[in-house]
Amino acid sequence: MTFDPLRERGIPLDGQLRNWRELNVTPIDPDHADPYTRCRVIAMNGIEVEAIQFSHRLARHCPDLEVRQQLARVRYIEAQQQKVVGWLLPGVSSVLEMTIAYEQVAVDLTAWVARMEPDAYLKQAYQFGVLEDFDHLYRYANLYEMIERRKAEKIVDGLTEVMPGRPAHLHHRDPMDNVREPYNRENTAPVSKLHALTIMSAEQQTMNFYMNVGPMYMEPIARQLYQEIGLIEEEHVTHYESLVDPGESWWERLLNHEYNECYLYHSFMETESDPKVRAIWELHLNMELEHLRLAAELFKKHDGRDPEQVCAPELPAPVTFEPNKAYLRELLATQIDYTTLGTGYVRAAHERFERMREAIMGGEKAPSERVIEDNRERSGHEYRLQTEGEHPVGSLADHR
């Protein structure tokens, strides 16, 4: 059965305000919850944070008092939604446990989007990025074993493998080589716009998380690893945000944000295994339908077009968290030795790549390399979680 959020009606805005009791949700069970429920919570938190931040940016550029007041009303509800979603996470998880969960989100969400993306250039962008998130999961899993004496399989539950991807010390590129060509808003499939906005928001959340939690550690190797991967996450946000057509008007961007929230809440409602969490996804979907209606009215008034000219006539296939082991192994076998040059991809290191690595490494090994060596020394091995075999390593991965 098709679902067109532009034709559905949700809860009127005046009926969306919740009191403290309603906001005080029960967090998911850290020991028994489906790991993908936690992934959906983390992903949706990032989507809500992006919606709030975008609304603030729009308000700062909007001279119309009445519009700014409407944005403020919707934004406060978005902030309440974010508090409910974010507070579903249990407070017992350590920073490193949350970090590993964030990277599981990055791996399986980006891999799913790459599999579903119809545009070849955009697909390549997701395939390129996911091999780096895959490696980040491996580095943090080794830090987790070394510092907390626990194994990442407790968190990822075997749904996501933990092994080397494109080595992190090879992720440090000249900033200009992190900028991609944007999609064309005139002829790009609506689902491609949703994919770009979703992965940009998720990576932005991860970047912000690492910026804030990295200095909370005392262990030098932990502080340094968060610094290194935090810088790479900045590269990833640049990589993904540059996919969005900068020619989209503020009103078109607002419409896309609200449509994407409807898409993701509907997706997670359809795929959620926890009934209590599913009820939250359903409630928030019914709120977002009204936010979308209001955004559509602003789009028609200020952009002069009908929302149907921009948005899909029905929601695409639900965004699904599921294992992507075979797909990732295929990418590891065929694309691990990629780097970027300008807005494209090459298999060989080039002058700007070499110059950047030399400048940032300073003649020393990267923290992402040292954390593996340190864990081997302390634990007698490096941590991996694999279901079968090893993956091949290409020429760039062997580059020193």
Rank of each mutant, 00 (worst) to 15 (best):
R166V: 07
V84H: 04
L159M: 13
A168T: 13
A125H: 01
A168F: 00
G165C: 05
R75P: 00
A111L: 11
R75I: 01
E132T: 11
V74T: 04
F134N: 01
I77C: 01
P164G: 05
Q124V: 03
Q104N: 09
Y140T: 11
K83F: 09
F134D: 01
R115T: 12
G91A: 09
L88T: 08
A120Q: 05
L137R: 08
R173I: 09
H169A: 09
P167S: 06
A120I: 05
M98G: 05
D177K: 04
Y144S: 09
A141V: 04
R73T: 07
F134I: 01
L170P: 00
Y138T: 05
A111S: 15
R139M: 01
A152F: 06
Q104T: 13
K123F: 02
E153H: 12
Y126P: 00
K123M: 02
M116N: 11
V92K: 14
A72N: 04
A79L: 10
A106M: 08
D177S: 07
K151C: 11
Y121G: 02
A168G: 04
Y140W: 14
L131M: 09
A111M: 08
W112T: 08
L122P: 02
T99R: 04
Q82L: 12
L143Q: 01
Y144W: 11
K123Y: 01
M116D: 10
L96Y: 05
A111P: 10
D108V: 03
D135A: 02
R166A: 13
Y126M: 15
E103Y: 11
M98W: 09
R149S: 14
I155T: 07
H136C: 05
G165V: 08
P164W: 07
Y140A: 12
L159Q: 13
W87E: 14
V107L: 03
Q124Y: 02
E132L: 13
R150K: 15
L159P: 02
L137M: 06
H171I: 03
N178W: 14
V92G: 07
D157G: 03
A101F: 10
V95P: 03
E78S: 14
S94G: 13
A168K: 00
G129C: 03
I100D: 07
P175T: 11
V107R: 06
R139I: 06
Q104V: 13
E153R: 12
I155N: 03
V95E: 07
G91V: 01
R173F: 03
